[in-house]
Every structure is written in structure tokens, then in C-alpha cells.
Design a binder for these strands. Structure first.
Lengths: 141, 141
DNA sequence: TTATCTGTTATAGGTAACCTATATCAGATA
DNA sequence: TATCTGATATAGGTTACCTATAACAGATAA
């Protein structure tokens, strides 16, 4: 399963779903234009209420990551990052980055080590990693 | 004032205090061994309840960032990053980094741009930036 | 000693977040 | 027709978050 959640996590379920979808897009596992499962279907697979999935999808829509139509359902936007609220995104994002990197520094990770891990994560993006025969919950079909 | 919070933010107040303290340590504005304001004092300065500050300090203590004694109050640990829960810190931290960097990628920031901002943030750490005469809420005194 | 500040703990209450449970409606589809 | 879908409404329960008040004990200064 390409999308897993942790019911015991302190992170809200809808936030976990949102994070996994964003990561899947960055990884290339979710191509632009591809459809996400229906809210009821994904809720059934995750054994949660469909309103929780609906909240996650609505968050992704408000962030400009996906489009939601009654016909085609939830679809990854082809021009994600071009929404109206994207103007000041970089600044707000870098503020959160600053907090996260500060945390690593305080916990003893050297600046070089931190930068190395940043590069490692970035390099991991863009490559499709679904093995042949693996069930892909997030793809069409 | 070196520590400001936004009461209208969706980020909990205690989380904002925690974030600002961590950033101040990374910036070098809060040296190891220096004391934080008392919970009641900081609460009064921020015009919030002292229990909220107490929650922020307790979070920093559980994260191994500060020590709290009845005598010296809250003090920045000299060996922050050496706590018992620091073993698996790097992995958990990188997972959060992955989510954050994926978000930037999805919103159109190129991989080079993302890496450049990571370096920019890291380079900003370590330099003391308190101007002469500036009131420093987080220092001794 | 007295007064004050500190950290610590306890209790209580209000608002909001989060998740679930049902139900209904209408458009699309097999 | 039957089914799936997105969208919306209501309701209830649990927990997070913040505030308010009180009390206790250790440390410190007048």
C-alpha cells in the first residue's frame, strides 16, 4: 500500500494523508493529472471515516495541490504551485524550514550533516519507485 | 523583543514559544548555559497564562533542549542533543524534513532553489545578531 | 523573620480541534 | 434502475489548548 497512516500518531489523520499525498507527488509516484481514490474508497481502505479523508482532500485543494470535480473526482493539478495563494508561499515555507533546521542544529547535527541530508532528500524526489506488481492505491484504476 | 508570538496563528502558543527558543539557540542568541525567563515573567511579558509558558518549557525539557531546576530555573543545556531520546532523532527528523521539502517541490520551487534556501538558512545560524542596547528578553538579567 | 519570587502541582471551565456516525441530495455512470 | 460519486447537514464524543485560581515548598533579598 502506497499510503499508510498511524492512528496512534499525534499528527492528525487528515494531516498525515495530506503529507503522504504531497510526498507521493514529489516522489513521482503520483503524476500530475492522475486521480486520487474517492473519499469513500480511501476511507474504507484506511478503516476511517470518509469525512476525515474529505478534510484531507479539502486541505489539498485549498493548498492548490489538487482539483476536485464531481465528474473526475480528486485529480493532481498539472500546474500545482500556480495558485493565487502561492505568491507568499516561499517566505512562509522558509520560516518553517528555519524552525526545522534550527531543531536539527540544536540536537547536535552539524551544519554539513544537515545540508547533506537536505540534498539526500531532494535527490530522492522524482524517481518512480513502484515495483512491478505492487498495488498502487493512488494511481488510476 | 527577542521573542514574539502571534495569538492569531494556527500554531499553538506553547509551540511558538518552543520554536522561537530553538531558533534563538541555533542563531547563537541564546548561549548554552544561559537562563530563560521565569514562566511567570515570560507569561506576563507576552500577556498570556503562565501555564502556557510552563507547557512550552516542559516540552523543551522533554526534548532535551533545556534543564529546569528549582534553583536556577530553565537553563539551556550545554550538551543538548545528548539526551536518551536522541538516538532515533535523526531519522524522525529527516522524515519531517522530507515532508517539508516535498511541499516546496510540489509548489514549484526547483530542487536547486530548495537546496539554496537550505544553505541560506544554515548559514544564518551561529552569528549573534543582538544590537547594542537592544532589550534581550531571553538573556540573563 | 518577613516578604517575594520561584518551580510544581491540583482543580476547573470554556472554546475549539478532531474524529466518528447518520442522513440526505444530486450528478454521473454502468 | 441501481450504484457510485461529491457535497452538505447535524450530532455526539474525545481530546487539545488556553485560561483562571489556588496552594505548597524551596530559594532569595530586605
Amino acid at each position: 500500500m502506497l499510503l499508510t497512516i498511524d492512528l496512534d500518531s499525534e499528527v492528525p489523520i487528515y494531516q498525515q494523508i495530506r503529507d503522504r499525498v504531497v510526498e507521493a507527488i514529489a516522489d513521482g509516484d503520483l503524476a500530475e493529472g492522475s486521480a486520487l481514490p474517492s473519499t469513500r474508497q480511501l476511507a474504507a481502505d484506511l478503516a476511517i471515516n470518509f469525512h476525515t479523508v474529505n478534510k484531507a482532500y479539502d486541505l489539498l485543494r485549498r493548498e492548490g495541490v489538487i482539483r476536485i470535480n464531481r465528474k473526475s473526482g480528486a485529480v493532481v493539478r498539472r500546474d500545482a504551485g500556480s495558485g493565487p495563494a502561492e505568491a507568499g508561499f516561499a517566505d512562509e515555507w522558509q520560516a518553517r524550514l528555519r524552525t526545522l533546521l534550527a531543531e536539527a542544529t540544536v540536537h547536535g547535527l552539524g551544519e554539513q550533516e544537515v545540508l547533506r541530508r537536505c540534498g539526500e532528500v531532494i535527490d530522492s524526489f522524482g524517481a518512480r519507485k513502484v515495483r512491478p506488481g505492487e498495488v498502487d492505491l493512488l494511481s488510476n484504476g
